[in-house]
């Protein structure tokens, strides 16, 4: 079974199993992980599932499209490692991936 680890801003870790094809946002909200609001429900339209993914994982996730990049630009805490969790679809290759949450969602 594949799992990813979500780490809240205060350091709380959540090790969560997933099915291939699920988004990181879906995995987080199904497991009620605090800190992922996902107001738009996964439409890449609100920016409230902002997460940080280290380059070692990020590079295998594919390019960020324009839509996601534009929403990320509006995040005050945006960094190089920023992604929107609703746009990150998980495959078997992502087993063990670590996803960190920002302090706030906006």
């Amino acid at each position: 079974m594949s799992t990813i680890t979500l780490i809240e801003h205060d350091g709380t870790e959540h090790s969560l199993s997933y099915e291939n094809g699920q988004s990181v946002m879906e995995v987080a909200t199904e497991n009620m992980v605090p800190g992922i609001d996902a107001d738009c429900g996964g439409e890449c339209a609100c920016g409230t599932c902002h997460v940080f993914i280290d380059p070692q994982w990020r590079d295998q996730l594919g390019e960020i499209n324009l839509e996601e990049a534009q929403m990320l630009d509006m995040a005050p805490e945006k960094r190089e490692e920023s992604r929107l969790a609703c746009q990150v679809r998980l495959s078997a290759d992502d087993n063990g991936m670590v996803v960190k949450l920002p302090e706030f969602q906006m």
Binding site: D37, A38, D39, C40, G41, E43, A45, C46, G47, Q70, M71, M74, F104, M106
Partner: peptide
């Protein structure tokens, strides 16, 4: 899912003062 409403709009113009 009370947060999933349209009052703040969606997309690049989404309400900046929502928080």
């Amino acid at each position: 899912n009370a947060r999933k409403h349209l009052s703040f709009g969606f997309g690049v113009h989404r309400c900046m003062g929502n928080r």
